[in-house]
Design a protein around this nucleic acid. Structure first.
Lengths: 208, 208
DNA sequence: CCATGCAGTTAACAACTGTTCTCTGGAATT
DNA sequence: AATTCCAGAGAACAGTTGTTAACTGCATGG
């Protein structure tokens, strides 16, 4: 898209991405608040001072990682929540998509789960912001569903938040079961499916 | 209870507690994986090497903090879940208890929320263990409720986990709203109450 | 009362951290 | 072709870290 980058800016973006990738790797066994800038540059094979050409601090890098991890997820969220089929089919499809995303982007998922309540305020805020956007999108999708007839805005949003949090919780459980035998992963999927099913049942009887 | 400690062991436990308290304070604006042992001893006013008389490492101290933060919570959980009244009354009472606990032990709550998915494995495991115990206790309480007639063990446990996670999520939201005006805190309480109510409705219609 | 135990101190270590300033080579601009 | 720009390198800084060893003073148990 847009314009072809000069050989110069291209190289810059390349090392920037290398810094992001290296950081994400190092963050699998520690928190952002203990990630050192030298540690990152060492992993990339670049001088410590080069870091400053791309980020003010490791906290700044963390905010960029939030964008990378969650920014591209919005289309998936939208298509998932507003997909066709009956309630059970949509739930199973959603759980499957979560499982697949955890398998293909484990480090990103771990980073979000870890730093959502982590020790770096700016990163926490960035994650909260993205999750709030998710909730708004889920709310919009729910509003279109005939089941939501008669619901007020506050209740739609509270249900949307419940779904988003449940999604994240499920992702975290899949993450813990990544190296486990498939039996365990299927158990996680089953529990998640039933929890979402229970929530959906509550939703259907909310206005009684 | 038990035996009166000698003047010696009493002093030891005193500095041990001072280390735990200082660490808990420092952990309000960082994660355990970046907490330094010297940082803690400096805050207490004691020599760095004194740390080793009590803990092998900061990770070890973290495990002790998990015990302190969650160990004493089991009786509260039990009495809450198995209290009297109809569904709505019990929910409001539970949300109120959570809010109160966050107000009286904010640092403990923050620590648990932060390190549940944090960068230190042993601490994560300790928290997972305690939460699993909570879930078992909630399950036992649910099993006694007439609403749970006909439920199998797996479903009882999946519902118990849903309640426990929802409890933690609510606690974390109360934490974020601690310094906010009361209006915001009341809004959090309202959302949490309705989410639990929706879950309870789903529970009542589970076997349909 | 005396010997032992042990919580906490002192000093020193090698290794590491974030940040500054100066420099360089090559792409970008004119 | 000459000039400017700038991503990255290099060296040096003051300050921090975890861990070791040998110590001191005092409560404890014989």
């Amino acid at each position: 898209m847009s314009h072809t980058l000069g050989i110069r800016q291209a190289q810059k973006q390349k090392t920037r991405q290398a810094l992001l990738d290296a950081a994400l790797g190092l963050l699998e066994e520690q928190s952002l608040s203990s990630l050192g800038l030298r540690e990152v540059t060492r992993a990339v094979g670049v001088a410590p001072t080069a870091f400053y050409r791309h980020f003010r601090s490791t906290a700044d890098l963390g905010v960029a990682l939030v964008e990378e991890a969650l920014g591209s997820l919005h289309p998936m969220i939208r298509t998932t929540v507003s997909s066709a089929g009956d309630s059970d089919q949509r739930i199973e499809r959603a759980v499957g998509l979560i499982a697949h995303h955890v398998e293909t982007h484990p480090a990103h998922v771990r980073f979000i789960a870890r730093e959502r309540h982590g020790g770096v305020q700016s990163v926490r805020q960035a994650i909260q912001g993205q999750l709030a956007r998710f909730a708004e999108e889920v709310k919009a999708a729910l509003a279109k569903d005939p089941v939501s007839e008669g619901w007020n805005d506050d209740d739609l949003l509270m249900l949307a938040h419940l779904y988003v949090d449940q999604m994240l919780m499920t992702a975290s459980l899949f993450l813990d079961a990544l190296e486990a035998p498939e039996e365990e992963r299927r158990r996680v999927a089953q529990v998640a499916t039933r929890q979402m099913r229970l929530i959906s049942i509550g939703r259907e009887h909310w206005l009684d």
